[in-house]
């Protein structure tokens, strides 16, 4: 398909506009974190930093609780991601392949979990966790994050499973592979992009989760980044530089995650299997 230069300009112009809209806040945060406090709060904002300093990062790492928040967040997010993936995969496979009464109804129903705003379940959940002694425990956050991420993850995973030709599974059945082996040795490698998508979704959901983390965690030392940030604001007035440095640092693990799992996003994995 050939595009005229008009179309091309419009297309690239449009893309550039979208990229700027998405990228600008990030640019703002990242550049802001290396500006001198004076420049950050100056009346005329600067697009490009005129000054350079690492003082905010220094303060962030040495004089604030940020490293602890970061560690807490990483732990909660990693566990949430792992459990989400480990549970979504067999659940999706069951919805996809196994026949049991009420399968379709159940499959549609699980998304109803998103029909309730978090606040609605927050109070009963608090009571529940209080009874079993999970208040102020990272485990509570992991449970909540997994519960929130699972329904959508199952949906995603199932649609990836649907791309694997049925015959491959049947061949494995004839070859004598038990269901778990089929899942682990055959399907998992073939839907690696799907697993990566689910993992990223679960990680980011947990990474940015604020509401439950703010209520279920009580002690400062167990806070995750989003809640911890709120603390930074109060604790030191509003230290914009510190806040921007914290936000920048908070992006880093997500970027690392994308870099790590990004290579799984290769298409054509099933190529050569059938036809």
């Amino acid at each position: 398909m050939k595009r005229s230069w008009r179309q091309a300009t419009a297309l690239f112009g449009g893309l550039a506009a979208i990229a700027i809209i998405i990228g600008l806040p990030f640019w703002w945060v990242v550049t802001g974190s290396i500006k001198l406090p004076r420049e950050i709060i100056q009346r005329q904002p600067t697009m490009f930093p005129h000054s350079f300093t690492l003082q905010h990062f220094e303060k962030l790492l040495q004089a604030s609780d940020f490293p602890i928040y970061l560690l807490n967040s990483v732990i909660v997010a990693l566990f949430s991601t792992a459990f989400t993936v480990l549970m979504a995969l067999p659940a999706a496979y069951a919805f996809f392949r196994m026949e049991f009464p009420g399968r379709n109804t159940l499959y549609r129903t699980i998304l109803l979990a998103y029909a309730f705003p978090g606040v609605v379940v927050l109070i009963p959940l608090y009571g529940l966790f209080a009874k079993v002694g999970l208040i102020d425990s990272p485990a509570a956050l992991v449970i909540v994050n997994v519960a929130l991420a699972l329904p959508f993850s199952i949906w995603m995973m199932r649609s990836f499973l649907a791309t694997v030709p049925r015959e491959i599974e049947e061949a494995a059945v004839v070859d004598g592979a038990p269901t778990t082996t089929i899942l682990v040795r055959i399907l998992m490698p073939l839907i690696a992009p799907g697993i990566a998508s689910v993992a990223i979704f679960a990680f980011i959901s947990s990474w940015t989760e604020y509401l439950f983390a703010s209520v279920l965690i009580v002690s400062d030392a167990r806070r995750t980044i989003p809640v911890g940030f709120a603390g930074i604001i109060g604790q030191y007035q509003i230290d914009w530089g510190l806040l921007l440095a914290g936000a920048t640092a908070a992006i880093v693990p997500v970027v690392i995650l994308f870099a790590l799992v990004g290579r799984w996003f290769v298409s054509g994995l099933t190529e050569g299997a059938v036809k």
Partner: peptide, 12 residues
Amino acid sequence: AMVFQTYALYPH
């Protein structure tokens, strides 16, 4: 043992 029309090899 079965041989399928679509080969059904394990691609990975």
